[in-house]
Design a protein around this nucleic acid. Structure first.
Lengths: 140, 140, 140, 140
DNA sequence: TTTT
DNA sequence: TTTT
């Protein structure tokens, strides 16, 4: 049973990253990314939700903010939940396991350079034994 | 303004591919893919919707069916629409631009081999000038 | 300083994987992969050398053999050394950090199924603190 | 026979891009890229050769120079030739089919912005019907 | 809910 | 809505 799941995106944060913690104290960072559609006449944009766990999440939360360009590597994730009205809802978002900070000229937070930085999770996401149920409320 | 958007998935079709046509006669194939989560203790699965245009779509529709393993390369797409009840809805799915047929032993439709075949779009998706509005009804 | 390095290949083993060990006892598996060039009229093939460390390397060595189809994810690596005649030589190969066994019908070694299996390194390659110099002789 | 071949790299040009033409007048651009190895204590760097055809090649040649950061998507290519001394030599390099210009602060050539631009080949490389033999001399 |  |  073959399975493979890899996503690579570059775009800009649509909001400041938000850092939260599971009930066990594991940090998760959530943010949005806007990816402009290349070669699109009408300036279309794709919007995605991204989460990053542990050290990687903390690094993003500490250094990135709305508008910043970023390169993300991770996997696509499908999630389901029950809405307020009892209907079943689902969503596809991204779990990052590697991130590159792309530079904007003279941006502090890029360490004074206009180029970029790098961050990666200490552990691979597959080893993570946490789940949405570890949150007291809906984590996304 | 950096932008990059690439997805690579391997999994199994969750339903027979459905081939439809825009009002201009452009073929588009829709199907679902199930990607089993690797290293997951609880056998989790991610489900995604995929579309493929033109020749690539036709090839998939002609040769693949529910259950078949497939390797997909494409881009993530964000779509919005208004639901029946007037609320705004959105969805993330995949537009394939390259596909590999992975084999299952002795499967006809794999051309008698148990290995795999290949298919690719003649044109890149970016050059496509069709849109959801070309459909008479909701295309996904 | 932005840096990113990711490769995804699918093809067939050109030789039986060879398992070796560093002087510290760290296993490293080496093999070749042939990737047929898609849409090439003249049946061209690209050949690459791949290495996989630790558990991932052991799994490949234990289950795969010449001719087997495989999906590889990893990074490109540039290496230099001095040839016998004193000239400087270099080479580009792949360090795998994730591998999918693609099936051939009824192949034992695929565990009796004709589909596929999966294997991944316990640690990311970046954390690896071994080097070519850990080998007594040239490791590739 | 499954085959897949995709590479994504980000790094900096190691030399000014060189634009050449096949005997049929098809432009090819060649350049080198340095990709710093992430998480490497000893500041290791991987060096690769890249070529880009047609419009994509011309764009790179027109806008990029030594030192510039770039994001490259393409495929790995294996090439063989006979050296002066009659020995057989081989080499692995990259054929780009999509490129993103990453920004450095206030860099002209990035159009005055510090962010980035984009470029893509009009045709996919697979459709290219040119070959090394189209060159009068060795093209790499 | 949306970035440059 | 779900595949092996």
């Amino acid at each position: 049973m073959v399975s493979f799941n890899r996503v690579i995106l570059a775009g800009n944060l649509t909001r400041d990253p938000e850092l939260r913690f599971t009930s066990d104290g594991v940090p998760v960072c959530s943010f949005g990314i806007a990816v402009n559609r290349v070669r699109s006449r009408n300036e279309e944009v794709d919007f995605f939700d991204v989460s990053a766990w542990r050290e990687l999440g903390e690094t993003i939360a500490n250094y990135k903010k709305k508008g910043d360009p970023i390169l993300i590597e991770g996997r696509l994730q499908y999630r389901t939940w029950e809405a307020q009205d009892g209907t079943k809802r689902s969503k596809v978002d991204i779990v990052a396991d590697n991130v590159q900070f792309l530079g904007r000229g003279g941006d502090p937070g890029d360490g004074g350079t206009s180029s970029g930085g790098q961050a990666r999770r200490g552990r691979r996401d597959d080893e993570v034994d946490i789940n949405e149920s570890d949150f007291d409320d809906i984590p996304f």
